[in-house]
Design a protein around this nucleic acid. Structure first.
Length: 201
DNA sequence: CACCGGATTGGCT
DNA sequence: GCCAATCCGGTGT
């Protein structure tokens, strides 16, 4: 199987962040944190396409210590604090200096399920524990400590091919969540969901 | 099931 | 000081 193989760097370096966001559906996110290995199938993503995208932290090529890693070439992690309480995990994409990123919004747990349930303080597997970007980080053990990691080389967080490319017809596109400030970008259908019970509603 | 508010920190104006 | 790429529990239908 090539399901447990990581993509080559050029997968992340494409300037087509929408295609990457869609391609990540069905792929696996893996973590090895505190000695616990976890694997989740990615079932929901969102594309952020600065400089034009007003929903992006890098809108207009705004560059700050927080979003600096977005300017790195694709293949790094971008983890930031949201609403003072949640660390959200993104995959940085595109060539250097083009600050694109894909937010991982939901997973279906595949391995390390006991650990994920403990971290979520949940008793049994149910989509409600994994169907949001804050929930993904909590379950997988991802924190801002993991910001800026090289997903090609890291032994803490990485991406694998997993199930392979999803059927076009099994993918839903819709506007992104929580970006009501983004004006004409509010309704861009840059949220991608697999028709899978673990994806958000 | 829909709607609503509180929690809680740091980034940036 | 304002408010954010969210979550969760409470209330009412």
């Amino acid at each position: 199987m090539n399901s447990s193989v990581r993509p080559e760097p050029d997968f992340f370096q494409s300037s087509n962040v929408w295609n990457i966001a869609e391609s990540l559906l069905g792929m696996h996110i893996c973590t090895l944190v505190d000695g616990e290995f976890c694997r989740g199938k990615i079932v929901e993503t969102e594309a952020y396409a600065a400089p034009e995208d007003k929903a992006s932290h890098a809108y207009g090529l705004k560059r700050t210590p927080r979003n600096e890693v977005m300017y790195h070439q694709g293949g790094r992690s971008y983890v930031y604090l949201c609403y003072g309480m949640y660390d959200l995990f993104n995959v940085v994409t595109g060539p250097a200096e083009l600050p694109h990123a894909v937010l991982i919004r939901a997973i279906e747990p595949l391995e390390g399920i006991k650990t994920m349930l403990q971290r979520r303080k949940a008793d049994k597997v149910h989509p409600k524990w994994f169907n949001g970007p804050g929930k993904v980080s909590l379950a997988m053990g991802i924190t801002r400590e993991h910001n800026g990691l090289d997903l090609i080389e890291s032994e803490s967080i990485w991406i694998e091919w997993g199930d392979g490319k999803a059927e076009q017809k099994s993918i839903l596109r819709s506007p992104r969540v929580g970006i009501n400030y983004a004006e004409e970008y509010v309704n861009k259908p840059w949220r991608y969901r697999l028709m899978n019970e673990f994806a958000g509603k």
